[in-house]
């Protein structure tokens, strides 16, 4: 029991004397525990942080939503000067999409391995995921170099680069997170089959980045 939940839920609790010992000597001054979690606190706390992350991703998603809205409006009302293209090459981005979608599955795989106590399998799948992410970034770079327009060529080009670039930034962060989690999941590391908030957080984030890409792909490349 944490200090938070130590008081009984009885309605007369306000007059109940403070008896539970955990309360007064409480070490959990900071209930979210930026500290290390142990034992039975973990479920409770992990829960908060996950919820916090979800809210953060909602916000992050709104940033993308704003950019998408801007892109769509530009497209609707500001026609391109001749030479600016809407029809991008599809091959590379499609491969990219595949890479990211697959990486979501591999990450999922890593997480379930961990839960089954397969530390090694988990780390292997994590590496594969990170590799897929890196491949995505590399291929994105390749696409940038092959494109006939630059950041300031026209409105479409600018929006294209800002959107894909902002997403690429997310992927880069994601890959770094995966590598950190990979390191923490080593034998004796802070992530194991009991305590794996970091891994779950990274997973959720990765799925989010993946989902954003799918929308982005649909709007920018297919539309």
């Amino acid at each position: 029991m944490t200090s938070l939940s130590s008081a009984s839920s009885s309605t007369t609790a306000s007059t109940a004397p403070a008896t539970t010992s955990a309360t007064d000597s409480t070490p959990e001054l900071h209930p979210s525990s930026d500290h290390h979690l142990s034992g039975d606190h973990e479920e409770h706390h992990g829960d908060f942080r996950m919820f916090g992350l979800v809210l953060f991703l909602v916000g992050d998603g709104m940033t993308f939503a704003g950019l998408f809205a801007a892109y769509l409006t530009f497209r609707a009302v500001n026609p391109l000067p001749s030479g600016g293209v809407y029809d991008l090459e599809l091959l590379l981005p499609t491969i990219n999409t595949a890479l990211l979608v697959i990486s979501s599955f591999t990450f999922h795989r890593a997480a379930s391995q961990l839960r089954q106590g397969e530390g090694f399998g988990c780390r292997l799948w994590l590496l594969i995921t990170a590799a897929l992410g890196a491949a995505f970034l590399a291929s994105q770079m390749l696409e940038y170099f092959k494109l006939p327009f630059g950041l300031t060529s026209n409105l479409f080009a600018s929006t294209f680069y800002v959107l894909t670039g902002f997403h690429g930034l997310h992927v880069t962060l994601g890959v770094m997170m995966i590598l950190i989690v990979w390191w923490q999941a080593r034998a004796g590391g802070s992530i194991n089959s009991e305590s794996h908030f970091g891994l779950e957080a990274a997973e959720l984030y990765w799925h989010f980045v993946d989902g954003i890409w799918v929308v982005l792909f649909g709007i920018i490349y297919l539309l």
Binding site: A76, V77, P79, L80, P81, S82
Partner: peptide, 12 residues
């Protein structure tokens, strides 16, 4: 004539 047909013009 606003959308697309006359790109970049000032006629909108």
């Amino acid at each position: 004539a606003m959308p697309a047909s006359d790109p970049g013009s000032d006629d909108r």
